[in-house]
Design a protein around this nucleic acid. Structure first.
Length: 214
DNA sequence: TAGGCCATCTGGTCCT
DNA sequence: AGGACCAGATGGCCTA
C-alpha cells in the first residue's frame, strides 16, 4: 500500500482547473505506445500445457497488458497530483513572500518573477541600511539614514540588483525582467525605502538583523 | 490579436 | 521502487 501525501484527492483531477487537453489525449510515446505484452504474463499460470488453447493465452496477455497500462496510468495520475501539490506549495511560499513585501498600491499583486526580484532587492536594501546604521555607531533615528544612504538606482547603474552582495545571482535574475527598467526599479525601490524607514523608526533603529528579518 | 503570465501535464533524472 | 525536482510543452485568461 502506497501512502500518498498529496492533499488533493482523485476528484480534484476532474476539476476544470486541472483539466487540459494533454490529459485527454496522451502524447506520442506515452501509455498507448506501450507494448501490451510483458514477461509477467508468461508466468501467471504455471500450469499451462500444450493442450491449453492458444486463445486463452492471448486473452490472458491482453488482460495483463491492460493491467500494466492501468498501473502506469495510476502512477502518472499520482505523479501529476504530487506535482500539482508541489507547485501549490511553491505558490503558497511565494504568497507568503508577497505578504512581507511592501507594495503600493496595497492590492497590487506582483508576478512571480517580480516578487523574487523585489525580494532580492528589498533584502539587500535592508542589509545595506543596517550596515550603514552600524557605521554611524549611534543607533539614532535619522530620516536621512534611509533616504540618503542606499545607493540610488541611478541611470548609470547597469543593474540595481547587481550591486547587491549576492551579485553572482544577478545574471539569472536581471535579464528580460519586467522590473529591469529604471522606472520600474524606482517603482520598487521607493515603496521599499518608505517602508524601511517606517519600520526602522518604529524600532528606534536598534535592531539586529535577526530581530528585524526573522 | 500578440504577448505575458499562469496552471497543469509529462517524461527524464536524481535521491532516499 | 517511489518520491522530489526539473524543464519543456500546451492551453487558458487577461491586457495593451
Amino acid at each position: 500500500m502506497v501512502l500518498i501525501k498529496s492533499e488533493y484527492r482523485e476528484e480534484d483531477l476532474s476539476s476544470p482547473c486541472s483539466m487540459s487537453t494533454s490529459s485527454l489525449s496522451p502524447p506520442p510515446g506515452s501509455y498507448d505506445d506501450e507494448q501490451p505484452f510483458t514477461p509477467i504474463l508468461q508466468s501467471e499460470d504455471g500450469e499451462m500445457t500444450a493442450k491449453k488453447p492458444r486463445r486463452n493465452r492471448n486473452r490472458s496477455t491482453t488482460k495483463n497488458g491492460e493491467v500494466v497500462l492501468k498501473i502506469k496510468k495510476t502512477r502518472r495520475l499520482k505523479a501529476n497530483n504530487r506535482e500539482r501539490n508541489r507547485m501549490h506549495h511553491l505558490n503558497s511560499a511565494l504568497d507568503a513572500l508577497r505578504e512581507v513585501l511592501p507594495t503600493f498600491p496595497e492590492d497590487a499583486k506582483l508576478t512571480k518573477i517580480e516578487t523574487l526580484r523585489f525580494a532580492h532587492n528589498y533584502i539587500w536594501a535592508l542589509s545595506e541600511t543596517l550596515r550603514l546604521a552600524d557605521q554611524l555607531h549611534g543607533c539614532t533615528t535619522s530620516p536621512m539614514l534611509v533616504q540618503d544612504s542606499p545607493p540610488s538606482p541611478s541611470p548609470s547603474a547597469s543593474s540595481w540588483s547587481c550591486t547587491s552582495p549576492s551579485s553572482s545571482s544577478c545574471g539569472s535574475l536581471s535579464p528580460a525582467s519586467p522590473a529591469s527598467s529604471n522606472s520600474d526599479i524606482l517603482d520598487y525601490w521607493q515603496p521599499a525605502a518608505h517602508h524601511l524607514h517606517g519600520a526602522l523608526a518604529q524600532q528606534s533603529l536598534c535592531v539586529t538583523g535577526t530581530q528585524a528579518f526573522i
